[in-house]
């Protein structure tokens, strides 16, 4: 069916009625394209997100921390696969999507272009980055596209562990020696603002937001989600005596929200467009990992071919 006005009206009526759109349903070409872009970008973020944390697996301070971090990084790989599998239902192959990541054609979340300098950064990532991701993904669990929404439900269930392990790391450091506490505060200072940027530009400056909202992919605006994250996090920081690095942070009695200072969108734009601290290193590491895995793919294919050949005479 072409994108006729009638078809689009019927499609939008289904979304307005709260129905989910499933892979074989008719959908406007633009809806399909926007979903492929958004979902693959999300999947790539899960995959690239393993890199800053993988950096610390061998240096985790205790076995307990190491087990937790390994399990978290393994989850991120799984989350990437859930979303790639959802994206494939839109008629695009995973190999093609991975290729777009490796050639730099596709984007991933800019937050992963910042370095993990100390162990406290692992705590800050779990607390802030996964905390922000949960706020965003809880909203996406109600997205109009069924496979995306279902992948989000699965991911949200698992990510609460990520956030809590991060917060526990920060709480432990904050209650430790003065040096440990300084390390925790330094990580908070570096990760707070990039975490707020994760929600994307203000809705009025976000080119894709209006369309995604109209089609029920996004149910809440970037600013609303960002505010929700700030409101949730302030009390958590107070509880472990760490300061969020924003002199303007104060409760706003009129709205009941925490007012926060202006975000440096120039920095955001620089990092999105490839000039963050680690953009090149992250892509190089992904390409290396992909080519290092070539022998595994070859071996599995050879194994399957051998078994197919062995089974063939019996089947004939």
């Amino acid at each position: 069916m072409p994108d006729s006005p009638d078809a689009i009206t019927e499609f939008e009526a289904r979304i307005a009625a709260g129905e989910t759109i499933e892979p074989k349903d008719w959908m406007p070409d633009r809806y399909r394209k926007q979903l492929i872009r958004m979902m693959s970008q999300h999947a790539h973020s899960e995959v690239v997100g393993m890199l800053p944390e993988g950096n610390w697996i061998t240096r985790a301070p205790t076995l307990r921390r190491k087990m937790g971090l390994l399990a978290k990084v393994q989850d991120e790989a799984g989350h990437g696969l859930y979303i790639y599998c959802g994206t494939e239902t839109l008629g695009v192959g995973r190999a093609e999507l991975v290729d777009q990541l490796l050639t730099g054609k596709a984007k991933y979340s800019s937050i992963f272009n910042y370095p993990t300098l100390t162990w406290a950064d692992i705590g800050a990532i779990g607390w802030f980055v996964d905390g922000a991701a949960i706020v965003n993904q809880t909203m996406l669990a109600k997205a109009s596209y069924g496979p995306y929404a279902r992948a989000m439900v699965r991911i949200c269930k698992e990510e609460n562990f990520h956030k809590r392990q991060g917060y526990e790391i920060m709480a432990t450091l904050a209650a430790g020696t003065p040096e440990q506490k300084r390390m925790a505060q330094d990580a908070v200072n570096r990760w707070w603002w990039p975490s707020l940027m994760m929600f994307g530009p203000s809705d009025k400056d976000s080119p894709n937001s209006a369309e995604l909202t109209r089609w029920g992919v996004k149910r809440k605006g970037n600013d609303e989600l960002r505010q929700r994250f700030v409101n949730l996090t302030v009390a958590q920081a107070v509880a472990i005596d760490l300061k969020l690095p924003d002199p303007e942070l104060r409760p706003d009695p009129a709205t009941g929200d925490w007012h926060f200072g202006p975000i440096d969108w120039d920095e955001f734009s620089r990092v999105v467009h490839g000039d963050g601290p680690l953009n090149r290193e992250r892509l190089a590491a992904r390409r290396q990992a992909h080519s290092d895995g070539e022998w595994v793919r070859e071996a599995a294919s050879a194994y399957a071919a051998k078994h197919t050949a062995a089974a063939a005479p019996a089947a004939a």
């Binding site: 696969l81 599998c85 995973r94 699965r154 599995a300 194994y303 197919t308």
Partner: peptide, 12 residues
């Protein structure tokens, strides 16, 4: 239904 995977054969 949970999702999908890519694999060379049923066992993997």
């Amino acid at each position: 239904h949970a999702g999908s995977v890519h694999a060379v054969d049923a066992e993997s």
